[in-house]
Amino acid sequence: MFKYLEKYKEQGDLEYSVSDNLASACNAPRHSSGIYLIFSDKLKLDNLIYVGVSGREGSKGEIIHRKDGLGGRIVKGKQFGEPRRNSWSKKMIEFGFEKIIVQWYVTYGEFNQDIPRVLENKLLNQLFNFKGKLPLWNKKF
């Protein structure tokens, strides 16, 4: 469904379980901006639970990178009212997920210059049109 993400040369994934240290598990770069997709247990569309971004567009259309990039956003960003290193484990237990898989894509870096928020909106719109709802952990788009 998201074939257009394959064009990004800098991409990867990481697995995270409740007992893992998120900073140690994260292999996303800390110098670029991009998008990340979170799946519960398996890389299947039905298991997609969140779509997030790092980096934002400035008032003149330029990219404003987070100081510690995509990797920093995944590790240090807040979700559910607290840092992800704490909140993800709690939510995984709440929903019965054994692990989550984070697929990440550098959309604005050395090889590509696509604003992450534009891609996030495109993905969330596609998902909403296809499934009639947003991923479990996304509140809005």
Rank of each mutant, 00 (worst) to 15 (best):
D20M: 07
P83G: 01
Y4L: 11
E62W: 10
L14S: 10
K139V: 07
K140Y: 07
G72M: 04
K90C: 13
Y105D: 02
G12K: 12
L43I: 15
T107S: 15
E15G: 13
S19H: 09
I49G: 04
E98A: 12
S32A: 14
K9L: 08
Y4M: 12
L127D: 00
D68T: 14
N86H: 09
T107G: 11
L119F: 09
G132R: 15
Y4V: 08
L14T: 08
P83D: 00
S24Y: 12
D41M: 05
K99G: 09
E110Q: 14
K131G: 04
I64A: 08
D114I: 01
K76D: 09
G12P: 10
K131N: 10
P83C: 00
L43Q: 14
E94C: 12
G58A: 11
R56A: 02
E57N: 06
N112C: 13
K90E: 14
K122G: 01
K3S: 02
L124E: 07
G69V: 02
L136Y: 06
N138L: 03
E57W: 03
S89L: 09
K91C: 11
S33Q: 02
Y105P: 05
K42T: 13
K133A: 04
C26V: 07
E82A: 12
R73S: 05
T107D: 06
G81K: 01
A28R: 05
K60R: 10
V18P: 00
D68P: 00
G109Q: 03
P135H: 12
K67A: 12
G81F: 02
L45N: 11
Q113G: 09
Q11I: 06
G52P: 07
F111T: 00
P135V: 07
N27E: 12
E6T: 15
G71Y: 00
G34N: 10
P29G: 13
R85T: 11
N125D: 06
G81T: 03
L48C: 06
K90S: 14
G96K: 11
G12W: 06
L48V: 08
I115T: 10
D68A: 12
S17W: 06
S17T: 15
R56D: 00
D41T: 14
G55D: 08
V53K: 15
M1W: 13
I38Y: 06
K7M: 14
G52S: 06
